[in-house]
Computed example of a mutant assay.
Amino acid sequence: MDKSAFFTVKNSTFTPVAGLAFFAIASGFLMSLIPLSLTSFNMDNSLTAWLASIFYLGILVGTLGVQSIITKSGHRLALVLFLSLLIATILLMLMHPVAWVWLAARFIAGIAVAGVFVVVESWLLMADSAKQRAKRLGLYMMSLYGGSALGQLAIGPIGISGLTPFFCVIGLLLIAILPPLLVKKGQPLQLQHQKIGLKEARKISTPAIIGCLVSGMLLGPIYGLMPSYINTQLASTEKTAFLMAVIIIGGMLIQPLVSFLSVRVSKSLLMALFCLLGTIGIVGVLDGKSLLIISMSYFILGASCFALYPIAITLACETIGVEKIVAATELMLLSYSIGSVFGPVIAEHSNRSAHSLILYLGFVLTTTSIYMLLKSLHKTHSGQTPAIG
């Protein structure tokens, strides 16, 4: 199909964003609920890192098959399918609260979440300009992170013990299914989505791939290990929920700035600056003496870590045709997933310090900042236009 013909069909943002918002609330609550509820189900806390890693392994595996499902069913029904699969994994965990079942369920949940991400991201990225893509992705990230922050705050009033919190998550996911189930107009046309060959993959910006990889290496441990780390440091479930929400709110509020700058500043330089900002946040977390300073530091850390993925994925999609957006989204999510799989395990076992997670995040942010800065300087000196990556 001709590209201009594709854009004559209205590609609505309401359905994916509305579904994503409720999915994000449920997912944000669930990501902190799982590590904090292990003891109430008589499971060891040492399972935390493995549950995080196997979840992201599921995301990695899931990225390999999403394109074929979207091609056969369309974006709308694919979103309903993946959300339903996620609900089924939670029910399985509640029916059989033993370690190996939870590990298997979280692996399948990762596949389902990969489907949700690829469906929604490709749906929104099928736009006719880089500026519109940046705006849509900013809306996507704000909905995702805003919902996740609300989910974190639910830990306090709802609690972490028993079945009630998990049933609340299921209820939110059922609401998330309603927009794609009931609103049948506005999805992208069912194109014959093309795969990206090896030669084309090599042409995708290396900083874009590295940016997605590093994003996973940062966000995997933040989602999987940070609740336990904060709870250990402060011995307060309420403060843990508050600070996790602060991290994600930082990621949400930075998105308009990311959208504004990503079409005006070199994306490599932009990622370098955000990583440097994250390093400053790490120093504040380690040295902060008051809850206010620590909260501000976590806010800065969240803003920097959550800024990387939208910058990287828009950089990757700048020169990709609309028929290859799904494949490009899969490739970027694959890079993110690889980082997410290994990040929690490396962070957990990198050293024996009580602050091993924070030190790991600081190391990743610092080295990435240096790499992106060097790439940005190299492009500037080689005569390339710095505003495109």
Rank of each mutant, 00 (worst) to 15 (best):
L234Y: 14
G288I: 06
S215I: 03
T89V: 06
L219F: 12
S4C: 06
L361I: 06
V246D: 06
V263L: 04
K195A: 14
F166M: 05
I69A: 10
P386N: 02
P221V: 00
L191N: 04
I248F: 13
M271K: 08
S228L: 13
F29L: 08
A241L: 11
M93Q: 13
Q384G: 04
L60I: 07
P165M: 07
G186R: 01
S32K: 04
V118I: 15
I158G: 08
L91K: 10
H75F: 14
A127H: 02
I293N: 05
L86R: 05
R352S: 14
N351T: 13
V364R: 07
H96R: 12
C305G: 12
A241R: 10
S27K: 04
L191I: 02
T385C: 11
L64C: 12
S215E: 08
H96W: 15
Y223G: 02
E121N: 06
Q255I: 06
L365E: 10
T63P: 08
V345C: 04
I69W: 06
S73Y: 15
G278S: 09
K267C: 03
L225H: 02
G321A: 15
S259M: 05
G321K: 12
M31T: 12
M95F: 12
T39P: 09
L20Q: 05
K72Q: 15
T240R: 09
L57D: 08
G74E: 10
T206R: 13
V118C: 00
K324M: 00
S37Y: 00
L273S: 12
T319P: 07
A112T: 05
Q190G: 10
D2L: 10
L30C: 13
A201L: 15
S290I: 03
W100V: 14
R133T: 02
G251P: 00
S356N: 15
P207E: 01
V265L: 12
V258P: 02
V364Y: 04
T380I: 11
L182H: 10
S228N: 13
K131C: 07
S369K: 01
E121K: 00
I282M: 02
T206Y: 14
G389I: 10
H355F: 15
A241S: 06
T314W: 02
F41M: 14
L153A: 03
F117W: 13
S266C: 09
T367S: 15
I158R: 05
I196D: 00
S228G: 09
E318G: 08
L377A: 09
Y371G: 09
I254Y: 00
A88H: 04
Q152V: 03
K324A: 08
L85G: 11
L270Y: 01
M244D: 01
I248W: 09
G339P: 01
L173C: 00
G162T: 01
I155K: 07
L213H: 01
V364P: 08
S161I: 12
E121Q: 05
V66A: 05
V120S: 03
A114Q: 02
I254S: 05
I248N: 10
I294D: 04
P157W: 04
F107G: 06
P157L: 03
